[in-house]
Design a protein around this nucleic acid. Sequence first.
DNA 1: TCAGTTCGCGCG
DNA 2: AAAGCGCGCGAACTGA
Length: 587
Amino acid sequence: MHTEYRFIKSIHDIQPLLSSLNENSIIAIDTETTGLDPFQNRLRMIQIASLNQPVILIDLWKASYDIISSLKKIFTSSALKIFHNAKFDLKFLIKSGFIVHGPYFDTMLAAQVLSAGQKSQGFKLSDLVREELSIDLPKELQNSDWSGEFSEEQLSYAARDAQVLLEIYPCLLSKLENAHLSATAELEFECLSAVVDMELSGMLLHAEKWAKLTEELEKNQSDLAATLHQRLKEGFKRIPQLPFMDNLNSEQPPLNLDSPKQMLEALQQLGIPLKTTSHEELSQISRQFPVIQALIDYRKVTKVLQSFASTLPKYIHPVTNRIHPDYWQIGTTTGRFSCRNPNLQQIPRDQIFRECFIPSEGNLLIIGDYSQIELRVAAEISHDQRMIDAFQQNQDIHCLTASLLIGKDIGNVTKEERQAAKAVNFGLLYAMGARGLQLYAQNSYGVEMTNQQAVDFRKRFFEVYQGIASWQKELSTSRLKEIRTLNGRLRIWEDHPKMTELFNSPIQGTAADIMKQSMAMSFPYLNRNNIHLIATVHDEILLESPQEKAQEISHFLKETMIKAGKKFIQQVPIEVDIVIAKNWSEK
DNA sequence: TCAGTTCGCGCG
DNA sequence: AAAGCGCGCGAACTGA
C-alpha cells in the first residue's frame, strides 16, 4: 500500500490544506510520540490526511512558528476530526499546548459501539482496516523510535496510518447509520474531551495519611492472621489424628491462609460443611464457627491491603504527584466506563480510604451523585405506574417498597425495614431469586430474612409493581437476542441471553448514557472556567474547583446532570445530590 | 516457566 | 421453573 505524503518544510506546504478548510471539511489525524506517557514523553510528529490531498507530515520539533500557528488553526477549525483512539492523541496534543475542538469521529469507539458487546478485542487500527478495506497493513514498526532522524519507512507508515482513517471512516459511518447506532456513537465522541480532561487531571492522594493507614492495616492483618491460626489450631486439637496438626505446630507457615483450596480442605477436615470458601457460604455459618468469622475478617483486611493500600502509591505520578487512571469509554458490554491502573471506581467506601483523596491547595471537591438512577430508569422503561407516581411525589422508594411489602403505613417504616426493602428493590429488579435475595440482604445490607420471608417479599414485590412484572414477563417470553438503551445503545448476544442480563442491560446502559451525556454537556462550561473533571464512578462525577468558584460550579453541575437525565427520562424526575467537600468521604 | 484461568472481593 | 448485572485486580492454580 502506497500513500502519498508531503513532509512539511515551510509554511507554503501547509497552506493548501489550511485554505481548503471549511465547516464541511473532514480530516484524519494521527500522531507519533516518543512514548505512551503524555507527562514524560513528547509529541514528535503530526500527520493529517484530507480528501484529494497528500497526507501532510509535520515534525513538531522542527516546525516554525508559522507552521505551529497553522496547526492551531486546523485544530480549532470546525472540520470533523477523525482519530483512532482519539484520547491518546488528544492528551499529547493538549500537553503540547494545542487547543483541539470537535466534532470528533473516533474509529475505535465507533467499532466498539458497532460490536454491541460481542467482542472485547480486535479494535486495533490494523483490525479495522482488514475488516473494512480487506487490506493487511504491513507489520507495525516494532518499537519505532520517534526521537531521532526518521527513516523513509517510518514516514510512509506514519502517513499511511492517517490516510487509512480517512478510508475506513465512510464504512464505519454507514454501518453506524444502518445499525441505528449514530446517536450512541455521537454521545461517545462528545464525551471524549471530558475523558481526556479526567485522565490528565487525575486525583490527588494524601500520601502520608495513606501510608499511615497502610501501616495500621498491616498490623491489623497480622493480628487477624494470628487469630485465624489460633482458631484452626484449637479445632485440630480436638481431632488430633489429622495431618494438618503437625503442620500447625511446626515453625513453617502451616497452611496458606490465602489459598482457597487449602482453606477449604482444612475447614472441611474440621467437620465444617462447606462446598467452597466464598464469602456467601462463609457468612451463613460464621456465627456457629469462630474460625469462619476469623477467616472472613482476615480476608477483608487482606483484600484491601493488597488491592489498594499497598498498590495505590505506586500509581502516584512522578511528574504531577497525582494518580491518573485509564478510563475506557466502552469498557463494558452495557456502556459503562471501566477504569484501570488503578481502578479508582472500586476504592472502598469506608471513610478511612476515601478521606485520603483530596483536592489540591486552594481547591475543593465537588461531588455530584445521581440518586437511585437505576430505579428511576427502570420505572421509565417499564412504565410502572406505581413507581412513577412514587418518584413524582418525591416519596422514598425504599420506604414505599417496605410499606407495601409489609402492609405498614409509610411513615412508620423503620430503618431496618427500609434496609430490607432496599435489597428487595435492587435485587428483584434484575430477577434475583428468593435464595439470592436472602443472601444479598444479609451481605449487602445486614438484613436477616428467612427463606419464606424472601419468597413472600418476592411475590409481593411483583404484585405491587405490576409494571415491572409485566415488563419482565414480556422480555422473558420475547426470545430477543438484542436490546437497546434509551439512547439506542445496542447489546447483542450470540446465543439467547440470560433473562437477568436482558433485564439489566437497558437499565444499567441507560444510566451510563445519562452519565456520559452529563459529562459531554458539562465539559465546555467547566473547561472555560478552568475546572477539571477528576473522576467518574458510574453514577457519580467528581470535580476539582477553586474554593471561590465552588458554589457556582456545584450549582451548574447539578443542573447539568439533571438536564442530561431529562434527555432520556421524562416520566420520572431526576434527582442529583451535590456535595462540596474537602475530601471524597463526605457524602 | 509462563500465559491463561479461576477464585474471591472491592465498587456501582 | 428458576435466574443479579456490570467491572478490575491479586494470588493461587492449571496446563503445556
